[in-house]
Design a protein around this nucleic acid. Structure first.
Lengths: 96, 96
DNA sequence: GCCATTTGCGCGCGTACATGCACATGGACG
DNA sequence: CGTCCATGTGCATGTACGCGCGCAAATGGC
């Protein structure tokens, strides 16, 4: 999952937390941050402290990898792509 | 390049900046952050603002990718491994 | 619908962050 | 050697961050 900005980070953290069946209370305890802050982080807080972000990522057993930005087939995360596709279909169904 | 903590981030940013032939002044201007802050970031500042970190990463044309932490051959970055090996050899040479 | 749980967010507090300035230091170069 | 450049870091300032509390709104299960 590519993360381009704090918003991406926050949404991804929320997704992963839910996938792992955790509440914010569970995760903030595991990461040793305040629930208030975690809520903000998940909403895309621009000014979050990076050290705390890493604590959350570790609590979720997530790893960050940095790479030179490239544009091509390697950038295509198939699961992500299909998920986006399915989401768009669901959106169309709602509007139809 | 795996980034586990702000220290990793800072050192990686410094490495990449140098590889790209930039000074801190060049990079802080490109990223629109203070040079003072960039210097701290490169030293591993725990409390840096994540939004600003992303600005620096973008200025260096770097991308972050988040993955579940796994342990196995996939985690083996060969360049990184060799660099660590070389570094250890250099370390041994110093101590010998 | 009811109820319990979860989440968003206002608020105040003590601490500190990003900034810009300036200076010291180390390294490169002529 | 002297000069220049890049970098580390002390300092002061205005702004705000992480925390904890508490309450309202949202969500999910029955």
């Amino acid at each position: 999952m590519r993360l381009s900005n704090p918003r991406d980070v926050g949404y991804y953290v929320r997704d992963q937390r839910r996938e792992q069946g955790m509440t914010q209370s569970d995760l903030c305890a595991a990461a040793e941050v305040s629930r208030r802050w975690l809520s903000d982080l998940e909403s895309g807080k621009q000014t979050a402290e990076i050290g705390l972000v890493f604590k959350v990522l570790h609590a979720l057993r997530l790893t960050l990898v940095a790479n030179p930005t490239t544009y091509g087939p390697d950038d295509l995360d198939l699961d992500e792509y299909l998920r986006r596709f399915d989401h768009n279909d669901a959106g169309d169904a709602d509007h139809a």
